[in-house]
Design a protein around this nucleic acid. Structure first.
Length: 809
DNA sequence: CTTATCACTGTTTTT
DNA sequence: CAGTGATAAG
């Protein structure tokens, strides 16, 4: 405990009188200026539990930061006695900046303002030893057979890749078929348990059937393995801290005393582990202020519990509930549309947002023939808005965003914008640190910092190719295991024993020597930038990409350069690795003027003057998969997602859908999203020509007959009564019939599934034309097409040849 | 052991 | 359709 710096929570807690003495000058508190009554209440109610229900755009960050400023200003707490947690690094950064601005200076002391994960890492590094492998009560021994039995403070944080690889190994070791029981699935299950703060022994027996009845067993094995490797995964950061707090009341008590005030952002997104963690910490004083909006809870799929926010008053009796309902972001119609939509959800805490910004543009709704046309139209709109259209002042591209449900939707826009030269930026796309070459390079750095990082070793032993295939790697693993040492030492031993031979041997030796050299350099405190370059050079990694002639190679080299450049901001490699493990968001600078393309999830907390919401089609949004898995609950979450989307818009919100879309390469006709029905007609301008509805030749053909010519916004008045059009009504009627909604979309499929095909039948397929069935496996037919040759096709996509005339295409 | 070809599978959403 | 993983050939 000697390395404690001034930020150390145990160090120099001030007495109350001292606290008062450091309080800033009394008198005016500038951070209170301009707050409305509700915000003020949220800021000034310092003691006891507070729940701030903050609707979209109601100035919650403002209130939250003012509250922190107030705590500090009044001397209630020093900056580092305040625990403030957010979900994203971006939110944490913004909060830090704003508090700094409010208090007119740096707030270096706010050590405990960060994401759940980053705060937990800090805590866990201090108490790592309290997490040990279950070795029959001998947890006091830190080393067993050369392997650590407890976590050490310098543990590494695994990325998803490592996690999956590790689990795969365990699955194979358990003699399970890794194809039937994919590691991804196991990872999902384990993640779910961790989100619920369940250690292996706590997993309820009702879930013993998980993963072929081996779930808990594999979970336990995985946890053991992680500790052996001195590693944790993301879920562990919280899980371990909850475990420590539960098992070591003395440790918990220290933090309960230290963190005098707790603030939580986006409380509706907390999972059970986070909830327990918070509750444990707040147990003593109950000075906890949670900010959230149940209507914006969109992370249920990854374990978030809306229940946490709904239950707050029960958890913390006497809680003061403050509602922020005045919206400062959007105009009247946008707000009205969002409010109406979300009112379809049950079990809300309920808020009534209002705004002083009357008038403005209605929410616009437009249908398109297909996804490409949608992208084309939106591209043109964006350009029009840039030049000033619809009576709105010109908007920069930075002021406009396209928010999609699923990231694959982004592609159509990228393609289109690329071809018309419209600058765009994809937010939350493939993240920098998740790229192959970056991860490889990082694995090398990890080895340099800690040569016993076996996962890093595995990742790059044979990258670039060193002639060390599966067999050689297995030998190394075996030798290492037998000797009870890590892979680097195992490899060395294997070489000495002559267990690895051939040309791989020499290269392996060079590789190991390299690791030794690099590690020595790290220990010597060598210049880390130079070292990083040396490593990439000596390992042959750079050369590997130089020799690679695939089109992406130059980009990868570019990324590597960028990586090395990023090192400049850090003292050493360790610090860098630590940073990277937790920074999952990439902030592409806002310097250039570009349209943003991102998912709805990624858009939470952001706002744009103009927002486009494409792809509002049943099955896509709401997502069929979510519905299948989560039923009504999931539908409501999808609806909240829609709510989040609309409320991102300040002055112009445009919703669109396409009648046809390519899914897995197959064309599919789409029904407009049921959420479209839920929008209030009075606040919506329908730009779609009425003829588009019901234009199809059959029920399935609710496929919307196309008209690409109508495209002008000026025509909108003429179509304003589309809600009364026969087509719209027919659509509504179809929707409210008793059949499950999905049935509409899949009429063709369902009809045909009922129709048995036999070998030798003549069939028709939209894409391949006519053919004859020559074989069948379940619902997959092998068809010899007249023109396209032999293909495997799902029966749902086939029709009997004599009925092909009825195909609604 | 590496490389090429082929089949299969999957698509939410992320710290 | 595209990216991945398995299998066969060099």
């Amino acid at each position: 405990m000697s390395d404690f710096d001034e930020s150390d929570p145990f160090e120099g807690a001030l007495s109350l009188s001292q606290r008062a003495a450091v309080a800033m000058r009394p008198g005016v508190a500038p951070y209170l200026d301009g707050l409305n009554a509700a915000q003020r209440a949220a800021v000034e109610t310092l003691d006891g539990p507070v729940l701030m229900l903050a609707g979209a755009g109601t100035g919650k960050t403002r209130a939250l930061t003012a509250r922190i400023a107030h705590l500090i200003h009044t001397g209630r707490a020093r900056p580092n006695e305040i625990l403030a947690v957010t979900f994203t690094n971006k939110a944490a950064r913004e909060m830090k900046d704003r508090v700094g601005r409010l208090l007119g200076g740096a707030i270096e002391g706010m050590q405990w303002l960060g994401t759940f994960h980053s705060v937990c890492v800090k805590l866990l590094r201090r108490h790592a030893e309290l997490i040990s492998r279950d070795v029959g009560g001998r947890a006091d021994d830190l080393v067993e057979n050369g392997h650590t039995v407890s976590l050490r403070p310098n543990f590494t944080i695994l990325d998803t890749d490592d996690q999956i690889r590790l689990m795969k190994q365990l699955i194979v070791a358990a003699n399970m078929d890794e194809k039937r029981w994919p590691a991804r699935q196991l990872a999902g299950i384990i993640d779910g348990w961790k989100n619920r703060a369940l250690t292996p022994e706590k997993v309820p027996s009702s879930e013993a059937g998980a993963f072929n009845h081996r779930g808990t067993e594999l979970y336990a094995a995985y946890q053991d393995r992680l500790i052996t490797l001195n590693a944790v995964d993301f879920g562990d950061l919280l899980l371990h801290m909850v475990t420590i707090f539960q098992r070591h009341p003395d440790v918990l008590a220290q933090y309960q005393r230290w963190f005098r005030y707790i603030l939580v952002d986006e409380y509706q997104d907390t999972n059970i582990a986070q909830y327990l963690w918070l509750r444990l910490l707040a147990q003593g004083h109950h000075n906890i202020c949670c900010v959230g909006d149940d209507d914006q809870s969109i992370y249920g799929w990854r374990g978030a519990e809306v229940g946490n926010i709904l239950r707050f008053e029960k958890d913390f009796p006497g809680a003061k509930v403050v509602r922020l309902e005045q919206n400062y972001r959007s105009t009247e119609h946008i707000l009205a549309a969002a409010s109406r939509l979300i009112s379809a959800n049950q079990g809300r805490l309920g808020k009534t947002l209002w705004t002083e910004a009357k008038g403005g543009q209605k929410v616009r709704l437009i249908g398109h023939w297909d996804g490409e046309e949608e992208a084309r139209w939106i591209g043109e709109e964006i350009e029009a808005l840039r030049d000033g259209a619809h009576g709105l002042p010109p908007m920069r591209l930075n002021d406009q965003a396209i928010l999609v449900r699923a990231s694959h939707q982004m592609r159509a826009f990228e393609d289109r914008f690329l071809s018309i030269g419209l600058p765009y930026r994809v937010i939350g796309g493939p993240r920098f640190y998740e790229r192959l070459e970056i991860r490889d390079a990082m694995a090398y750095f990890r080895l340099a910092v800690s040569p016993d990082d076996d996962l890093a070793f595995e990742r790059v032993v044979n990258t670039p190719k060193r002639g060390l295939g599966e067999k050689a790697q297995q030998t190394i693993q075996r030798v290492a295991r037998e000797a009870g040492v890590g892979l680097v030492l195992g490899a060395r031993a294997a070489l000495q024993q002559g267990a690895v031979t051939g040309k791989g041997a020499a290269q392996l030796r060079a590789f190991i020597e390299g690791i030794g050299r690099w590690h020595a350099a790290v220990l010597d405190g060598a210049d880390h930038i130079r070292l990083a370059e040396t490593i990439l050079e000596e390992s042959g990694y750079t050369e590997m990409w130089l020799k690679d002639k695939t089109p992406e190679a130059p980009g990868r080299l570019e990324n590597l350069k960028e990586l090395v450049k990023a090192l400049e901001q850090f003292e050493n490699l360790q610090g860098f690795l630590e940073h990277v493990a937790l920074i999952m968001d990439n902030d592409s600078g806002e310097a250039e003027d570009k349209v943003s393309i991102m998912t709805l999830h990624g858009a939470k907390g952001l706002e744009f003057p103009a927002v486009f919401l494409p792809g509002w089609e049943d099955g896509l949004f709401p997502s069929q998969r979510a519905l299948d898995e989560g039923g009504l609950k999931a539908l409501e979450e999808e609806r909240r997602l829609a709510y989040v989307g609309i409320t991102r818009a300040e002055v112009l919100c445009t919703i669109s859908f396409a009648g046809n879309r390519r899914v897995y390469g197959q064309w599919q006709s789409q029904m407009p999203s049921r959420f479209i029905d839920e929008l209030p007609a009075a606040d919506v301008d329908v730009l779609t020509a009425p003829g588009l509805y019901g234009g199809g030749a059959s029920a399935a053909g609710a496929a919307f007959a196309s008209h690409s010519g109508y495209g002008g916004v000026d025509e909108r008045a003429a179509h304003a009564d589309v809600y009364n059009s026969p087509g719209w009504k027919r659509m509504q009627a179809a929707r409210s019939s008793h059949a499950p909604p999905a049935a509409h979309r899949k009429v063709v499929t369902i009809d045909l599934e009922a129709m048995p095909f036999g070998i030798g039948d003549r069939v028709f397929n939209v894409k391949y034309g006519y053919g004859e069935i020559i074989d069948a496996e379940g619902d997959t037919m092998v068809v010899e097409f007249d023109k396209a040759g032999s293909k495997r096709v799902k029966a749902g996509f086939l029709q009997a040849a004599d009925q092909a005339g009825d195909v609604p295409f």
